[in-house]
């Protein structure tokens, strides 16, 4: 188990590095080396760490642990081929991590990040409609059943294309430097994790690396199907680069536009689901 966790964190952080590199190249900059995020994490681990005196100590530390636990659990779900709904639940619970990190220290900047995270709660809705659509098509939400379905009927990507778009939007709204990452916009310093430094920052970096890996892996697993580890990793890489393209060429939206775009996406997919459920 631990070897999977460490490996997934490693790959996730590497993906973050590739993400930065690709964005830099598209924008005509040399960019950092692709292992930059790994070095970052190790650097933060070796930095002086303490808990700010104004902070709510328990929350301040606990959310870091919870964020690691949530994404470890998501990885374990992928390994044990459990329910997709549970994965969705863990993703939604990630909101509480953002929120808790922002509130814990009492700093107004991180608090702004936390409030933005709440306001953009609409970003979890596309996932719900995506899950519902998959359930409507495969009749099951267990990952192993979805795999079996795809082994027989071919990739879900074509059948459930709107669901794939929805999940893509979800991943996009969680990726760094993306059009929807209003929670870590620079006008509020670093957003919700402004006040987490040193060890805490390093561990959160690692947890978010794990998150990126798990989300991308889920996408490939659910929409392309069982294609073996090397091909899956290749798929993840391609997906990551496509996300980087989107991030590089779109500006960050304002909070209002972010919520609007996410809500409209959800609405369209919900209409599609109702159409499928009622007429087809």
């Amino acid at each position: 188990m631990i070897e999977y966790i460490i490996a997934a964190m490693f790959i996730g952080l590497l993906l973050h590095g590739i993400h930065r590199k690709v964005i830099a190249r598209i924008q005509g900059r040399p960019g950092p080396p692709i292992w930059q995020e790994l070095l970052h994490t190790l650097k933060f681990l070796a930095k002086e760490s303490w808990i700010p005196k104004t902070a709510s100590q328990g929350v301040y530390v606990a959310v870091v642990g919870i964020s690691i636990a949530i994404w470890t659990a998501a990885l374990m779900l992928l390994i044990t081929q459990e329910s997709l709904l549970l994965l969705f639940a863990l993703y939604v619970l990630h909101k509480i991590v953002e929120h808790g990190i922002g509130l814990a220290s009492g700093s107004p900047y991180s608090k702004f990040g936390a409030i933005r995270s709440v306001v953009s709660a609409a970003s979890e809705l596309p996932l719900l409609s995506s899950v519902a659509l998959i359930y409507l098509i495969t009749g099951s939400l267990m990952l192993r059943d979805i795999e079996t379905y795809q082994a027989i009927n071919g990739p879900l990507l074509f059948v459930a294309f709107p669901a794939a778009i929805a999940l893509y939007m979800v991943i996009l709204s969680k990726i760094h430097y993306g059009p929807f990452s209003i929670v870590e916009a620079k006008e509020i310093v670093s957003g919700y994790w402004t006040e987490h430094f040193g060890v805490w920052r390093g561990l959160m970096n690692a947890a978010f690396g794990l998150k990126t890996f798990v989300l991308l892996y889920t996408f490939v697993m659910v929409f392309i199907g069982p294609i073996g580890l090397p091909l899956t990793l290749l798929g993840i890489l391609i997906l990551m680069i496509s996300l980087s393209f989107v991030c590089a060429i779109t500006p960050m939206l304002s909070p209002y536009d972010t919520v609007t775009v996410q809500t409209i996406t959800t609405g369209l997919i919900a209409i599609y689901i109702i159409y499928l459920g009622v007429f087809a």
């Binding site: 966790i5 919870i66 636990a69």
Partner: peptide, 11 residues
Amino acid sequence: LSIILAPVFLI
């Protein structure tokens, strides 16, 4: 069990 232990270990 590893979900519970992983944060403890990493922190």
